[in-house]
Simulated assay, not measured.
Amino acid sequence: MTNEVTATELLDGRAVTVIGTGLVGAGWAIAFARAGANVRLYDAQHGAAEQARRWAASQLDEMAATGLVQAPEAI
């Protein structure tokens, strides 16, 4: 018997906030989103969070092209 819980169960509907949207922060955003969590991005630099969102979307598309994820638009 395992004690595994999903991100949804663990977070009880709360979003994960990633502070700092450089390479590492954007990577964490992808990981949390793939686990089913709602993710919010924050960065002190104007426009950085939106840039990270676009980068994450492109990475998910690349992952889909190689079969690592299905339906990246749903993540």
Score class of each variant (00 low, 15 high):
residue 44 A to L: 12
residue 22 G to F: 04
residue 9 E to K: 08
residue 26 A to M: 12
residue 73 E to M: 00
residue 61 D to I: 05
residue 11 L to E: 07
residue 19 I to W: 06
residue 74 A to P: 03
residue 61 D to H: 07
residue 57 A to L: 11
residue 20 G to D: 05
residue 28 W to E: 14
residue 31 A to C: 11
residue 12 D to V: 04
residue 67 G to E: 04
residue 62 E to I: 02
residue 14 R to H: 08
residue 49 A to K: 05
residue 55 W to A: 14
residue 60 L to T: 02
residue 27 G to I: 09
residue 68 L to Q: 11
residue 54 R to S: 15
residue 29 A to I: 07
residue 37 A to D: 08
residue 29 A to V: 05
residue 20 G to Q: 07
residue 30 I to D: 03
residue 15 A to Y: 01
residue 26 A to T: 13
residue 70 Q to N: 06
residue 55 W to S: 15
residue 38 N to V: 03
residue 48 A to E: 10
residue 40 R to H: 12
residue 56 A to E: 07
residue 25 G to L: 09
residue 49 A to Y: 10
residue 37 A to S: 11
residue 22 G to R: 01
residue 1 M to L: 11
residue 32 F to E: 00
residue 23 L to S: 09
residue 63 M to I: 01
residue 50 E to S: 14
residue 7 A to L: 08
residue 75 I to D: 07
residue 31 A to I: 06
residue 16 V to S: 01
residue 48 A to R: 14
residue 15 A to D: 15
residue 42 Y to D: 08
residue 8 T to E: 15
residue 42 Y to T: 10
residue 6 T to L: 00
residue 73 E to F: 02
residue 47 G to T: 10
residue 46 H to E: 15
residue 21 T to G: 06
residue 52 A to F: 01
residue 61 D to W: 02
residue 37 A to F: 06
residue 34 R to G: 09
residue 64 A to F: 03
residue 64 A to G: 04
residue 51 Q to P: 02
residue 68 L to Y: 08
residue 2 T to F: 12
residue 38 N to I: 11
residue 33 A to L: 03
residue 41 L to R: 02
residue 47 G to I: 06
residue 10 L to A: 13
residue 41 L to T: 02
residue 46 H to Y: 08
residue 25 G to K: 01
residue 30 I to M: 12
residue 31 A to H: 06
residue 5 V to L: 15
residue 73 E to T: 11
residue 12 D to P: 00
residue 1 M to H: 13
residue 55 W to D: 13
residue 41 L to C: 10
residue 38 N to T: 13
residue 8 T to N: 10
residue 40 R to C: 11
residue 41 L to S: 04
residue 12 D to N: 13
residue 63 M to S: 05
residue 63 M to W: 07
residue 60 L to Q: 05
residue 34 R to D: 08
residue 49 A to T: 05
residue 65 A to F: 06
residue 25 G to W: 03
residue 65 A to N: 07
residue 67 G to R: 03
residue 68 L to S: 06
residue 12 D to F: 01
residue 62 E to V: 05
residue 56 A to N: 02
